[in-house]
Design a protein around this nucleic acid. Structure first.
Lengths: 75, 75
DNA sequence: ATTACAACGGACTATGAGTCACCTTTTAAT
DNA sequence: ATTAAAAGGTGACTCATAGTCCGTTGTAAT
């Protein structure tokens, strides 16, 4: 699976846990709602600065975000 | 510290461990020679696809790469 | 003096950021 | 079952910037 899709899935999962709509997350991360859609569906190749905003909006950090089976099994 | 700088430092550290020149790493990751300089010095806002190539060229993965104090202490 | 490496710069092309109108799907109500 | 509202997805667009390619400079070692 592409890194885009993996990241999208992880964001979706964390968003669901927090019971947020894409719109609410978008607002927190200061991006457009449709942008979140694009990221979650793996269509966007995000830069680390934007990813940082989204991760923080999910009250997480890079270390925790990527501490997940799918990101440890690659290579 | 910016996420760019944190990532740059981490890449530099891993590259040194592997005893690679920037050029050798660039070649492995299939990016431009000058691009690695920009990333390591924190001037570049990399996309996850390119970051993936660099991380793999360093024989690592996202999970391990971000499993580092600086990336766990943010937020 | 030459070689290897790293930082930097300018000019260029490819692509991501950010936004919009519009459509479909899901949910929850009556 | 029908409806309305909320939520999610799509394509196309502009503008900023990611990433490339040419070179130069500084440094340290040989």
């Amino acid at each position: 699976m592409s890194i885009n899709k993996k990241i999208g899935k992880r964001i979706l999962a964390l968003r669901k846990i927090q019971n947020l709509s894409q719109e609410a997350l978008a607002h927190r991360a200061n991006v457009d709602r449709t942008y979140i859609t694009g990221v979650e569906t793996g269509k966007r190749n995000v830069t680390v600065r934007v990813l940082e905003r989204i991760i923080h909006a999910l009250e997480s950090n890079f270390g925790t975000f990527f501490n997940d089976k799918v990101f440890l099994d690659e290579k």
